[in-house]
Amino acid sequence: MTIHFIKAGLQTSIQDGGRQGLMHQGVSTSGAMDTTAMAMANWLVGKAQISALFEFTIIGPVIEFSQNIHISITGAKFELTLNNLPVSSYQTIHVKAGDKLNFGKRLQGARAYMAFSGDLLFENKVLQDVLGSKATHLTAGYGGINGKAIRDNTNFSIDFPERKSQVSLRNIDHRNVAYSGHNCFLRCVSAPESSLFNAAQQERFYHQTFKVHPNSNRMGLRLEGEPINFHRPMNISSSGLIQGSVQIPPSGLPIISSVDGQTIGGYPRIAVVISADLDKLAQLAPNDNVIFVKVSQAQALAILKNKQQQLSKALHGSATLPIRI
């Protein structure tokens, strides 16, 4: 065994770039909720940006390593220690046999990621793709490790720790990492039913601060606040439901669809979060504040292009140090 989860954390699962082209069969995209953090973690260990890695939620794990490998940690900020000494995220870490990594107190965000060099093995077998991906869908129970979250005392081993891994130590400047903190602005454009909401309902949606409900997960984020009331129920036909859709159920309290969300939905949608802001959903913790901001399609595209440029700058403009094993 190479990676021994002494404690698994609150909800730890294997994720990757997810599944594409299967929504018409009810299969959601899944994969890492924070795709930028995933891309950065994998880059730090020299792997393709959508490679499989671990996703941790709210409470991180305690891990003991029994082989020398490279790892990297990105996403939510925790008080990380390696053998009881502080260690930084957003860099390649060379761990040695016997090293113990501890995710202490969570400081910011909700989801962290850990990438590793080499191929992950569970029970001596290379992890198989399910419908083209290793991503775990916890609610429907498929992908990853039998569709389940990783439990305490689970062991993984690593094959060819140096293969697929560029042999260099890398880091990413923290200035290139966007933390939204406890107040999150989610920029939105129109949804198919946006025009069915009247001015008062739109006003209530865009001019209040919602709070993230604890009953939020990878399927969707539930918000609390002043409900967006209906005078009479909107009767709409169920249709394709994409990530970032903000549905208004009869309770009047918004639900934002996320990576494991259902692929067909029947509640009216008031808005859709822009692609560039979907990563922010991963980092929302219970009681964080959410404010929706309307933008135009042109702005949404410009923001996405800018984000893409920032990512490639962060990855290619960062220091790559020669290896020191």
């Binding site: 929504m23 018409h24 036909s237 169920s238 249709s239 394709g240 994409i242 067909i264 595209l301 996405l304």
Partner: peptide, 15 residues
Amino acid sequence: ELIPAYNSLTICFNP
């Protein structure tokens, strides 16, 4: 993605 439904077709693309 191309997601058919009762009376709609949702088409997803990379902008």
